[in-house]
Amino acid sequence: MLTDASILFVAAFLAGALNAVAGGGSFLTLPALVFAGVPPLAANATGTLALLPGYLSGAWALRDDMDKLRGFSLPILSIASLIGGTLGALLLLWTPAPVFDIVIPWLLLAATMLFALAPGFITAQSTSPASKRLVIVVVLAVAIYGGYFNGGLGILLLAAFGALGVGNINAANGLKNLVSALLTAIAVLVYIAGGLIYWPEAVWMMVGATSGGYAGARASRRVPVKYLRWCIVAAGAVMSLVFFVRV
């Protein structure tokens, strides 16, 4: 249906842009897919795949900022992301659909509350680069969450990188997009094996997310994040209420 396709494309474009700037894209893609008739469990997996190109284009747009980082191992970061994404995706695959239907409004609410409290987390930064062991533990934990449920992933990663000593917000944003892309890529392979992907919706949304991710990343140096954040919090609160009513 053309109306559904238009809604999915616009939701993916805005989600890709939001993820590149502040996170919260899943607050748009998940409800849009459910509105289009995709079951919540499959909508979570399909929306995650749809956002993958946006993460990639966002990371590419901020590659120069990441190149300036010192004392931070990208290979270690990548390995932790891939392992965590796999574990989280397997956990989602093993979750019965009726159980996920009950859990999803609570996950949305928790992610919304995290967004509301995010400024306090991000400003609590470390003054020196963290040890490799700490980086592995923190990124692995966040990647497991991201492989299971994408909502709030961006803000968790920004807070984590701030605590790990990445003081440059643009570099942290680039790392956030890179880790999100890696854990999403491996998680999507698990979703595909489990038959959770609705391909027509996913492909259409991937086009929107790619353009939105690049545009959002390029604009991230100029857009006041605090305004976007409160819009995301409002959207998350509404979506949480909608899903609580559906249960």
Rank of each mutant, 00 (worst) to 15 (best):
L41D: 05
P40Q: 14
A59I: 00
L182P: 01
L175S: 02
F243V: 03
G194W: 03
A217V: 02
I104F: 05
L183R: 13
T48E: 00
V179L: 09
A42P: 04
R246M: 12
A237Q: 13
A110I: 09
V203M: 12
V247M: 14
A159W: 05
Y55E: 07
L108M: 14
I197Q: 11
L49F: 08
N177I: 00
G24W: 01
A5C: 02
A118R: 12
K176I: 02
A235R: 02
S73Q: 06
D101S: 11
F161S: 11
G24D: 06
I76V: 09
A171F: 03
P119M: 11
L117H: 07
V21E: 01
K68N: 05
L30S: 12
L140V: 07
T123C: 01
I155R: 15
P39G: 08
L241I: 12
F72K: 15
R229S: 09
L93S: 13
A110N: 10
I155N: 14
Y191F: 13
M66P: 02
A15I: 01
G88Q: 02
T46I: 06
L108D: 00
G16L: 07
Q125E: 07
I136F: 09
L2E: 11
G165S: 07
V21Q: 01
G147Q: 13
S78I: 04
V135T: 12
S126C: 04
G47I: 04
L82G: 08
T29P: 06
P224L: 05
L153N: 15
P105F: 05
F13M: 08
L30H: 09
G162T: 01
A20N: 08
A118F: 05
L158C: 03
I136T: 12
L62P: 00
G37W: 03
W199Q: 08
A185F: 11
L74Y: 04
A163E: 00
G167A: 13
L182T: 04
V238R: 15
R218V: 06
A45P: 01
V38T: 13
G212L: 06
A172V: 02
A130C: 08
T46D: 08
